[in-house]
């Protein structure tokens, strides 16, 4: 287990939902995919979801699967409506300029 705040520091990430306290979110694993139909069926709670998909449906899928945080790779930039919905659903959103490959590698190393 690691804290989301530690991971954000390691990836030069920005918490774009600052009302969500990253120091209180624990990560046990990660999931990397942009197809939401797949994420819905396979992602699990406690995982950081790394994606470039920024459609509003990401929040519903995170909420359904119990994902506490979505990491937007390559500076993928969701609309304000997505950020507002995330706050409402208590899901943290983080943005990083790194690629999904780099983001997964760093998370994997920190967890193992």
């Amino acid at each position: 287990m690691i804290l989301l705040s530690e991971y954000i520091a390691a990836i030069d990430g920005v918490n774009i939902t600052p009302v969500m306290d990253a120091a209180k979110i624990e990560l046990s694993s990660g999931y990397v995919c942009d197809m939401l139909s797949d994420v819905m069926g396979s992602a699990k709670s406690g995982q950081a979801w790394i994606t470039i998909m920024k459609h509003l449906n990401v929040i519903a899928v995170a909420s359904m699967t119990g994902i506490p945080v979505i990491i937007f790779a390559k500076s993928s930039n969701p609309d304000q409506a997505v950020i507002d919905k995330a706050v409402e659903e208590e899901i943290c959103l983080v943005q990083s300029s790194k690629t999904a490959f780099e983001l997964s590698g760093i998370l994997y190393q920190m967890l193992n």
Partner: peptide, 9 residues
């Protein structure tokens, strides 16, 4: 739309 977004919003 369903494969990409999981469901039709």
């Amino acid at each position: 739309i369903i494969s990409q977004l999981g469901f039709i919003p």
